[in-house]
């Protein structure tokens, strides 16, 4: 009896000391079926727009580019290189200058 009381007290103390409460009995999980919205923003016109549309927007919507700060041409060269080398964007060598021109035109230093 005494031992049981001691044990209960220890369990109560441990429960109070722990930030990790036991959760309530879990609820059942329900299947989910949703639709994601389509792209609604477009890239502005500029030299190389077609190359940018064809290559950049396959993986991400225009918002990725539109929200970027103004960065020097070298930064845009590095971004395009990263997309090709790391994320494996299938961009031919010949298309790279047009994409960098475009990004620098719309997001280069003022």
């Amino acid at each position: 009896m005494k031992r049981r009381i001691l044990l209960s007290a220890l369990i109560a103390a441990a429960a109070m000391a722990s930030p990790f409460a036991q959760a309530d009995a879990p609820i059942a999980l329900k299947s989910v079926d949703v639709t994601l919205p389509g792209d609604t923003r477009q890239l502005p016109s500029g030299p190389g727009l077609e190359a940018a549309q064809n290559h950049c927007l396959a993986c991400h919507s225009a918002g990725m580019i539109l929200t970027q700060p103004r960065l020097p041409r070298a930064s845009w060269e590095a971004e395009v290189a990263k997309m090709r080398n790391v994320y494996k964007a299938p961009v031919d060598d010949k298309d790279v200058p047009a994409i960098v021109d475009y990004l620098t035109a719309i997001k280069g230093p003022k």
Binding site: V32, V34, P37, G38, D39, T40, R41, H60, S61, G63
Partner: peptide, 13 residues
């Protein structure tokens, strides 16, 4: 966006 209320849109996709 599904199951979401008012959110700041950074990127759609």
């Amino acid at each position: 966006f599904p199951q979401k209320g008012a959110m700041v849109l950074q990127r759609t996709r």
